[in-house]
Design a protein around this nucleic acid. Structure first.
Lengths: 193, 193
DNA sequence: CGCGACGTTGATTTGCCTCAACGATTGTGG
DNA sequence: CCACAATCGTTGAGGCAAATCAACGTCGCG
């Protein structure tokens, strides 16, 4: 499937948008391709875009004060992604965004996006709803973290996102779940259930 | 200050809205007053509104599987509040929303709010931005939790929100910071710094 | 005044981390 | 195509931060 069709399909979940409007909007995006391990954004730089993943797998992580990588997000095909505080407040990001597989994204800058909102008012509503859903997802995710111990975090995560278990190395899953790789290994060996 | 003026002041931070538009929008809200300890929302019920706090102090919490209250949010005057997943997906909330002081709120339902978006298109943008800022706040908050140990969480929280330290009992602060009340007490006694 | 809500203190326990060593697998250059 | 290094996962010993449990002091309110 072509990138434009993927984007169209995604946006049409939120509102009835004509092919003409999609064409118009799509022109504001830039397609970029990254090889496995390449950085889409490096810490210290400002995140100037929102990204729509058309192909591949991405992680977002920062380096904590002990020097360990902490993964805060993954994203795959048809996921929307940005580093919100860096993007909106135009401040340097403390996080890295990195392709974990060969990856293709569509990116759009804040100013282009705001322009599109003015040109195609319908989009204002679409992105309000996207943002609302994003918020729901993050709030659920926080509750998930707070309420479970490490073993249950792993069990819930692996049944909710079997794709990631397949495609992401175990130590990165561990980092995302706030567990050391050693301890995750121990969790899996006990009670294979 | 009257409730309408407070709301107007809040909304005008996001866009230039006329007094006429504010009047129109304000009619869609309902004012409700709660005594200390009363529930604005109980677990098991669906959260049908977004709330704007004009006076008082509120907490959001749920009961975990060990029977302990876990506080996930506080809100005071001029904060916007809802339980997103319950509100948008119209499913029962697992959380309680409770007034910790005598509290006054303005509430608006999802359908009234969506109607207002159609009547006053400018509001669509205002609420997109409010939602974006909400998202930024939550993402920052998650990073805050992940990167600090209990002592630093307390120190950062108490310097960032001295109001809450004054107005909220210590065991609730502890709950919000994911610390037991006993341990928070120990943190404070050592190294008064 | 008496009771319940709140905070404190100390002893014990525990979930998870740290550190170190060691297989298994992958991939890369000679 | 093999040899070797790097990457990744596993295992175990020891340690630590924070939870649990229990007891007690204090304050404010009905």
């Amino acid at each position: 499937m072509k990138a434009k069709e993927q984007l169209a399909l995604y946006l049409k979940r939120y509102a009835d948008i004509s092919t003409l409007e999609i064409d118009d909007f799509y022109k504001q995006f830039e397609e970029r391709k990254f090889k496995k391990s390449e950085y889409i954004l490096e810490a210290g730089k400002t995140c100037k875009h929102q990204y729509f993943v058309t192909n591949g797998l991405i992680r977002v992580f920062y380096i904590d004060n002990k020097g360990n990588e902490k993964i805060t997000q993954f994203a795959i095909e048809h996921w929307w992604l940005t580093h919100w505080s860096s993007y909106k407040e135009e401040i340097p990001s403390k996080s890295y965004i990195q392709a974990l597989e060969d990856t293709t994204i569509l990116q759009i800058s804040n100013s282009e996006l705001e322009k599109s909102f003015s040109n195609i008012p319908k989009l204002e509503r679409v992105f309000r709803k996207i943002t609302e859903n994003w918020l729901i997802a993050i709030q659920k995710h926080s509750e998930f973290y707070l309420s479970l111990d490490s073993k249950n975090r792993y069990q819930q995560f692996s049944s909710a996102f079997p794709d990631f278990i397949q495609r992401v190395p175990q130590y990165m899953i561990a980092s995302y779940l706030e567990i050391t790789p050693e301890h995750l290994s121990a969790i899996k060996s006990k009670h294979v259930s």
